[in-house]
Amino acid sequence: MTLQIWSIARRQIVRTLRQPAAVFFPVAFPLALMAVNAGGLTPATRLPGFPTDSFYAFALAVPFIQGSLFATMNAGTDLARDIQEGFFNRLQLTPLNPAALLLGLLGGVVAMGLVQAVIYLGVGLAIGVEFHAGALGVVVLLALATLILIGFGAIGATMALRTGSGEAVQGLFPALFVFLFISSMNMPRDLIPIDWFRIAATANPISYLLEGVRSLIITGWDGQALALGFGVAAAVTAAALVAATRSLRTRMERT
């Protein structure tokens, strides 16, 4: 089964690397958006209670989540295309273990997502962002990023397996983006002045993922933020994996 997982993951990585757009945009777009936001929102750091004087340090958490969304959507779209074009049937005709298919797919997502994460970290360091949690904090940040990638990857896989349509998977992308925007992406929740926005951001699981990553960068070791970040990521991942496993069982009709 290890060989099967590795083979599926390897295919996922190879085909991603052979599509320049699939490599470039998930790296460049979140960083570009961060630069634009930082350009406009840097004065927000002067608000009383803003947790850092560098908006880049505050916003660096966003590319990790946004990059995960990109990696996930690409993987989900690839799987849906496999179903549409019959490659999934080719896989079904081999002794492939269904769990290996899912784990291999997620392995590919995680591998590509971690490469992106390292690039975001490198860019952060290059623009002078200080990592308050130190080297160990970077390891914890990558662990949290991995958990988020698995969770989002499983959501993409579930959509692909349920619909068998690349378009449907891509349709999920704007919806997830809305979740990202209605979160504490650009402002700490307690400083959001509009009531409905603050309530929505508090109810939004994405806020806790962002705050978990962000705490390692701007605060150091914040037990509550990390517990909430890892807790929400674990819950999303568990639910998504259950959904993906069920969808895979339904999709794999083979006897």
């Binding site: 295919r11 190879v14 085909r15 052979r18 599509q19 496999d82 074009e85 019959g86 490659f87 999934f88 049937n89 080719r90 005709l93």
Partner: peptide
């Protein structure tokens, strides 16, 4: 089995 659609990955 070679099914009706020669389902291959164009990137491989």
């Amino acid at each position: 089995a070679a099914l009706q659609e020669a389902a291959l990955d164009p990137l491989l």
